[in-house]
Amino acid sequence: MDLQSLLRERRLLAIVRGRHAESVLETVLALAGEGVGLIEVSLTSERALDVISRARTALGSETVLGAGTVLTAQDARDARAAGAEFIVTPGIGDGALEARHVSLPAIVGALTPSEVIAASAIGADAVKLFPASSMGGPDYLRALRAPFPDVPFVPVGGVDAQSGRRYLELGATAVGVGSPLIGDAADGGDLEALRERTRAFLRIAAEAGR
Rank of each mutant, 00 (worst) to 15 (best):
V151T: 15
D125Q: 06
G183V: 00
I92C: 04
V51D: 09
A67Y: 00
D190Q: 03
R210N: 05
S133I: 09
P105Y: 03
G95W: 03
G91C: 03
G158Y: 03
F201Q: 03
P90S: 08
T63V: 14
E169Y: 12
G137E: 08
R166Y: 02
V108M: 09
M1S: 12
H20K: 11
H20C: 02
G109Y: 11
A186H: 10
L12S: 13
R19K: 11
S163Q: 05
M135Y: 14
S120F: 04
A185V: 00
G176V: 01
I87M: 04
R47H: 09
S45H: 14
P152T: 12
A174L: 08
L38I: 13
D2P: 10
T72N: 12
A124V: 12
A143N: 05
S114V: 02
G33C: 06
A96P: 14
V28N: 07
A208D: 01
R17Q: 08
A81E: 15
I15Q: 03
V175H: 11
R8I: 05
E40C: 01
L191K: 13
V16D: 14
D190S: 08
G60T: 12
L191C: 13
A118E: 14
L144M: 14
V154C: 11
L49R: 02
A200I: 02
R165M: 12
R100Y: 00
R11G: 07
R197D: 00
